[in-house]
Design a protein around this nucleic acid. Sequence first.
DNA 1: CTAAAACCTATGACCAACTCACAGGTCAAA
DNA 2: TTTGACCTGTGAGTTGGTCATAGGTTTTAG
Lengths: 146, 146
Amino acid sequence: MKVKELADAAGVNPDTVRFYTREGLLRPVRNPDNNYQHYDAEDLRRLRFARKSRRLGFSLPEIRQILERADDQHSPCPMVRDVFEHRLAEVEREITELQELRTRMISALSAWQDMPDGTPDGHTICRLIEHWDDPSAPPCCGEQTS
Amino acid sequence: MKVKELADAAGVNPDTVRFYTREGLLRPVRNPDNNYQHYDAEDLRRLRFARKSRRLGFSLPEIRQILERADDQHSPCPMVRDVFEHRLAEVEREITELQELRTRMISALSAWQDMPDGTPDGHTICRLIEHWDDPSAPPCCGEQTS
DNA sequence: CTAAAACCTATGACCAACTCACAGGTCAAA
DNA sequence: TTTGACCTGTGAGTTGGTCATAGGTTTTAG
Ligand SMILES: [Zn+2]
Ligand SMILES: [Zn+2]
Ligand SMILES: [Zn+2]
Ligand SMILES: [Zn+2]
């Protein structure tokens, strides 16, 4: 298979195939006549495996490690389980962060409901933002929450 | 104020001050004697404004636009409200995506509960991943969900 | 007075996972 | 034979900083 054939077979961009090849996830054989890369069914399996792993949240270095372990006839399963649990925790942390951002945004929006638009006077840039109380920021000059 | 003084006053990295300066968010005056940048209280206000805006989800180009509008004595408020609503929608889309990823991961974890670790045999890389049914992937070779 | 510490400058690389543009070589069908 | 589709490698762009490097300046301490 040539690059585009492999890419079409896996439903990815040909540039992704070239990128994964540079990253060492695929191992084509080069045709010395025309300098083309030649991929086989094994590469298609590796590519599909890599895409499936990406959808599960694995990074490219992690996928490369898994493939290398499998190439060495060692079971990647324990590593897969371990990495995966860490990734799940990280995803949940990202979700929490984004939900906190969403909470900040919604509280800002509701506070802005009744505020009129202002014209900058050299003292203020935008009251909407400057007068917004960031719940996650430390208190500053003389402002007390109690 | 010099770079580090401004950075300390705003609680950011001095490199962030230099970066924001290159990006046009801060406008220091250069001392021709030693080539140092000199920031004033206005720059501190702009820097604090930028940081607050970042915590609200604004991008640097958006913040620059807001500052430029304010410099022109035009009210940035309508733009702020508009950009903000789009950003909120985007954040909610990102949350949904991450929650879907989390769902995929948890369903994979529970499916892996009873699966034994396997050794690669040249036909399989890692059964955990390869035999995982991606709910968001289109059906492939002969696999039927019904 | 001098030497070291702490600061300043600009430039460029780095992160993640691709995607795209470019310039030049190869191969198929018309 | 001339298109057109494909291949090659390289380098830039994405986002918001952070860090490294090399060299110049200012402050502080001895
Ligand atoms: Zn496995
Ligand atoms: Zn205050
Ligand atoms: Zn405003
Ligand atoms: Zn199948």
